[in-house]
Computed example of a mutant assay.
Amino acid sequence: MGVHLITGSGSGIGAAVAALLAQRGEELWLLARDAARAEQLRGTFPGSRTLVADLAEPAALASVLADQKGPDHLDSLLHVAGVIEPGTVADLAADRWYGTLAVNLLAPAELTRLVLPALRAARGHVVFLNSGAGLHAPPGLGAYAASKFALKALAESLRAEEYPYGVRVTAVYPGEVDTPMQVRLHERLGLPYDPSTCLTADSVAATVVGALDLPRDGMVSDVMLRPGC
């Protein structure tokens, strides 16, 4: 049975990943932004454990997590949480850039740093849920795309740095996925939404878990997913 720390497990892809691992009897540690969300997650995933920390405040993660006893052996760290702030470069003020970069880039970097000893102890696996926007930046999503391009760089550096310790690193780049975030984004952009043209959260979750399951002689470094036909 593996031990897994997951961010963003409250809905969408994160919830699908947590559900898939829970079905297999894996030990789940779920990061929650506050005590109310932590209680909700424990109700959704009985037997899971929670850590309470706000990814919007990455500089506070070290002190907050130091007061909570997390796992000392971690088979995977799954960065699924993310935010999206639509707007053109002409329209987005600095505070909206900061908010996006804090959750999508700085928090994953800091959380990874804090749990690296547990990952090294298990020769574990870090998965970054990136985006197609982390490879090709669309108009109107500059802040989001910039955070995901930078997340790609973080994954590549971490992969090279942690290879001697046996820690594997995977970046997943899905296209549009049928999640509450995708619905909200279409509403804010005034675009029609058709879930049948999207990937499902379950398909992305299956890809993430498949990367974890690969035997030790190999590593899925990068995987791109697009809606099928």
Results as ranks from 00 to 15, higher is better:
R113V: 12
G134E: 03
L105C: 04
R168E: 14
R49H: 11
A150F: 08
G99R: 10
F45H: 11
A118Q: 08
L77R: 01
V80F: 02
V103S: 06
L51W: 03
V83Y: 15
L135A: 15
D95K: 04
G166Y: 10
A66W: 05
F149W: 14
A146H: 05
L74Q: 06
V115D: 05
F128G: 02
A145W: 00
G142C: 09
L77D: 04
E57L: 12
L61R: 12
A59I: 03
Q68M: 04
L151M: 04
G47Y: 07
A137E: 13
D95Q: 09
R168Q: 14
G47A: 08
V127Q: 03
A94Y: 06
S48D: 10
L151I: 02
A107F: 08
I84D: 12
N130E: 10
G134H: 03
E162P: 02
N104S: 05
S131D: 14
L114S: 10
R113L: 12
K152H: 14
R123Y: 07
H73T: 09
A118C: 11
F149R: 07
F149K: 09
H125Q: 14
D54M: 11
A160Y: 11
L129R: 01
G132Y: 03
A94T: 14
T170K: 04
L114G: 13
T100Q: 13
S157E: 11
V126I: 10
P138Y: 08
E85M: 08
R49S: 06
V64I: 10
V52D: 08
A60G: 12
E57I: 00
A153C: 14
F149V: 07
F128L: 03
E161P: 13
G87E: 14
R159C: 11
R96N: 12
A56W: 06
G70L: 00
D75I: 01
A56K: 00
S131V: 06
L101V: 09
D54T: 13
V169G: 01
D54Q: 11
A150N: 05
A145K: 00
E161I: 06
A143F: 04
Y165T: 02
L119G: 12
A90F: 00
A107L: 04
K152L: 14
A81I: 14
E161H: 11
A145S: 15
G132T: 15
V126Y: 03
L154F: 05
R159W: 11
